[in-house]
């Protein structure tokens, strides 16, 4: 597995797309800091971008890599390697390379602008951690889609719909539901609905650091009691990890039965 991981990672780190992705974050970091020199404002803007972009890129890269390396996967399947190791190795390779583009791409400009002197360092690192976790989650979802659908067009279409669902549609339905049932106590529902969407969960984890005054103030005790504690933080990270582990298990199960 480690070997597959190594070669997938190696392959991807040299691909044009990884460079573009890396350069995008590098440029984004420098531009944000150049424009306002204010690390805390840059972190807020970054939040908006990372929450939307890492899942999108993760899904698209995931399906694209899977379909593009299909024949190579066949070659590997003929080698004395365990099936699940091939897929898990490839999965880790792509997730790691995407995360690395993100972390290094943004890390360089922020370090160059004196992040370590800023109080925002902790927020910045949580942001990177969550961006990396979102990459892992959405690559896993993409791999599942690609494993289930041999048709490339279908796979890509569903990948984009998956992203759209978690990034936009889910929140739209969530908002409409809350507006429709606003005569009822909603805080537990809101908490529950947040937990089941990795993008929402990540967003809440970060804005609890940034907009704590708005969130803590307005929504009553439930959010505060939950997210305000280290238990809430721990629980959220466990949930995000589950969002990685469960799709990964599905990959293992499905890959055992899949024909190539």
């Amino acid at each position: 597995m480690i070997k597959i991981l190594k070669y997938s990672f190696y392959d991807l780190m040299r691909s044009r797309w990884s460079y573009i992705y890396f350069l995008f974050y590098l440029a984004l970091g420098f531009i944000l800091l150049f424009l306002n020199q204010d690390v805390s404002k840059a972190v807020i803007t970054l939040l908006n971008i990372i929450i939307v972009l890492t899942p999108l890129i993760g899904t698209l890269f995931g399906v694209m890599y899977f379909y593009n390396s299909k024949e190579f996967t066949e070659l590997l399947l003929a080698q004395p390697i365990k099936r699940s190791n091939i897929f898990v190795g490839q999965y880790l390779g792509i997730s790691l390379s995407l995360s690395l583009s993100l972390v290094v791409g943004l890390g360089i400009p922020f370090l160059a602008y004196g992040l370590f002197q800023s109080a925002e360092i902790f927020n910045f690192f949580s942001l990177l951690l969550i961006g990396a976790m979102l990459s892992f989650i959405f690559v896993a979802l993409a791999f599942n889609l690609a494993l289930y659908f041999d048709d490339k067009i279908k796979g890509f279409g569903l990948a984009i719909i998956t992203w759209l669902f978690f990034a936009v549609i889910y929140d739209g339905l969530f908002l409409i539901t809350m507006l429709m049932f606003d005569d009822y106590p909603l805080d537990k529902f809101a908490l529950g609905a947040t937990i089941f969407n990795p993008i929402d969960l990540s967003r809440i984890l970060i804005i609890l650091k940034l907009d704590i005054s708005a969130l803590l103030g307005y929504t009553g005790a439930v959010f505060q009691d939950f997210f305000g504690t280290s238990f809430g933080l721990f629980f959220s990270l466990v949930l995000l990890s589950l969002w990685i582990i469960l799709p990964l298990l599905l990959i293992v199960v499905k890959s055992k039965r899949k024909d190539f």
Binding site: Y10, N68, E74, I81
Partner: peptide, 19 residues
């Protein structure tokens, strides 16, 4: 999977990691 140690396989179309 271990038995594949004793097999050499040449697929119909060769397609390798591009980079």
């Amino acid at each position: 999977w271990q038995y594949r140690d004793d097999i050499s396989y040449m697929p119909q179309i060769a397609h390798f990691p591009q980079n």
